[in-house]
Design a protein around this nucleic acid. Structure first.
Lengths: 201, 201
DNA sequence: TGAAACTTGGACCGATCAGTCCTATATTGG
DNA sequence: CCAATATAGGACTGATCGGTCCAAGTTTCA
């Protein structure tokens, strides 16, 4: 049997990622998911805000499982994992015709403004992701230069990726993002031991 | 005599920077600028879209004059100018309680989505700013390492600053942005000749 | 002084929004 | 078989939106 609620969530997630939370109306969601009327929608969700939270949870969960999966590959070198992760964000944005946003997104900021509940949730998830990247940096046993604050580097990586996604939304050119991603990898290499930094320079 | 149109533009710019273009209603603008009714507003602007364009032009112009003024200071070392510029963005965001956006902003992305006219305009202005930063990098005669693509570094700088502004909008902590800004300066230093890179490491 | 530009105040329109309510008909699992 | 659940279809409300229209008073400057 079809899971209509999941279909609604999928449609809503797609719409919200493209046009934002506030700009996505319940009617839009209903039409996109092929429902007959509002009553059906409100049978599954008690409000638009609940829909928003479930969409957030769903995409965070999925991104945590799939998007961040590469970060957990035990057979690949930690720093190489990080580089692959950065590439995957570029690819995802390219696949979306530069219109992607979630979960590295301007939508995060928009939803953060749309409600304090959204904001704290997003903030917490960002923190968790930063933590994962930080631990990855620390796993690269000894290659991280002394005195480097891994948590700070992690936040820098996430901020730059978000900014890059935003830039492509304006310029609609994925090439820009590729350049930024490559430079970001160099930035990371800069925090590793000499021989490696030289090799990537 | 009071320049009511300028007052309207100021109020609108403030509102749009905080809550976005689409989320800012004409009624909001009228109330914030102390007008009596819509007729007065529509005496000065033929539509909301025109208001949007004039707000964009105005803030771009101002940011070009004031925000980027530091980039043109002839007495200061070019790279030092760039660092001061980065600091000024952090200070501006701190002053706005982490709610700032324009012109380094998520609002740019939102408005880019709100209309193709907005998008091309914003894209063009971003290009000009990138160019200014690029020329600054190139002015630092000889200190830029060979093979470094100044235009790419410039885009990286702008993307990272934008991402940092977005992050503070979610976390509401300026400290995060300060860390990112400092790391960004280090990233720039990385592209300079050895002695300098070592000095800033 | 007189016309053009600016300001006030408000009624109004059609569209869209989130959300409610009501009536039916399927579908499903205990 | 029956009751809970899911689906369908639509009317409706109260609020907000961008935008129009009108009628009247004020300021400015040529």
């Amino acid at each position: 049997m079809r899971d209509r609620k999941a279909e609604i969530l999928d449609a809503a997630a797609r719409l919200i990622a493209r046009q934002g939370y506030k700009q996505t109306s319940i009617d839009d969601v209903i039409e996109a998911s092929g429902l007959c009327g509002k009553s059906h929608f409100y049978h599954h969700f008690k409000s638009k805000e609940q829909l928003g939270h479930e969409v957030l949870n769903r995409s965070f969960e999925r991104f945590g499982e799939r998007g961040l999966a590469i970060l957990r590959e035990p057979l690949i070198d930690p720093i190489e994992r990080l580089n692959l992760f950065i590439d995957s964000i570029v690819v995802a944005q390219a696949e979306r015709g530069c219109l992607g946003s979630s979960p590295f997104c301007g939508v995060a900021a928009e939803m953060a403004d749309a409600g304090e509940g959204f904001r704290t949730r997003i903030d917490a998830v960002f923190d968790r992701w930063c933590d994962q990247i930080r631990s990855l940096l620390e796993q690269s046993d000894g290659r991280l230069r002394e005195g480097v604050d891994a948590a700070r580097v992690a936040r820098f990586i996430i901020a730059t990726l978000e900014g890059a996604v935003l830039m492509t939304r304006v310029s609609r050119e994925i090439k820009v993002m590729q350049g930024i991603a490559d430079d970001l990898k160099r930035f990371i290499a800069m925090h590793l031991q000499e021989q490696e930094a030289e090799a990537n320079a």
